[in-house]
Amino acid sequence: MSQTNTNNDQYYVPHLAKWPIVGSIGMTMTAVGAAIYMNNQFDSPIVMYLGFATLIFMMFGWFGEVIKESESNKYNPQVDASFRMGMIWFIFSEVMFFAGFFGALWYVRNMAVPWLGGEGTGVFTNTELWSGYEGVWPTNGPGNIGGKFELVDPFHLPLINTVLLMASSITLTIAHHALVDGARKKVIGWLIATVVLGATFLFFQVDEYIEAYQHLDLTLKSGIYGSTFFMLTGFHGMHVTLGAIMLTVITIRMMRGHFKPESHFGFEAVAWYWHFVDVVWLGLFIFVYII
């Protein structure tokens, strides 16, 4: 019956899911491919790339299916609420992921490094093992791991990047308001502005990494400072990349006439995610770059 397809009185429960198993295969190939490459058990990352391609294929298929269902009005407000909760709690899990790394940064700066420098009960650790080490942040440790390095100036590229990301949150919010007002052209314009700001941020971030590696001798291997600096900013950069791709997707969807002023969860989910990476950046700017 044709009309049953648009029946959204009931909570929509899909019949069969073909994409999860594709996702599992892709994920496993990516993981195994990465592991055997890292272990030098296999001298090419091809398996990892294939797995990654499978994952991207899965995402196209899975999200495509959801978008199709959404555009054909299969979802009622209750389904919408489930999606919202899913996204909120996913973002919460991401917050906790970053919290782990911020926690590590806090611990080494306030506990581990001062103890190595002889504070608290670390007197003998310092005099016997690491004599002369002062334990002052920034540090690559008493073993001078990775050699001498300099810091990135927070008030040059990082400050510009902060402004860029803050601005992108504002442009995105303007786009959202325009969507609620039904001004589609305006939405697309402001979305493109947001993507451009995000991409510029990433460009400067890459630029900063190149500068760090080539001129400042600051690398991932520069002791605990390099480890925390690159892992925190690197994971953040990955999230910005993902967010920018998501923004691009909803821009294309806007161009194709998707989303309605009263119902546009996909848009909102991406916006929440973008604000989240924005807030993480503020944390990075303060705790990694400035302080």
């Binding site: 080494v108 581990a112 008493p142 605990i224 925390t228």
Partner: peptide, 21 residues
């Protein structure tokens, strides 16, 4: 695999950090 020093005291890290996390 990538030479970070989270749990390496010589690099300013701390094995005990892992236990806390």
């Amino acid at each position: 695999y990538f030479g970070t020093s989270f749990f390496n005291a010589a690099g300013g890290g701390d094995p005990v950090l892992f236990q806390h996390i």
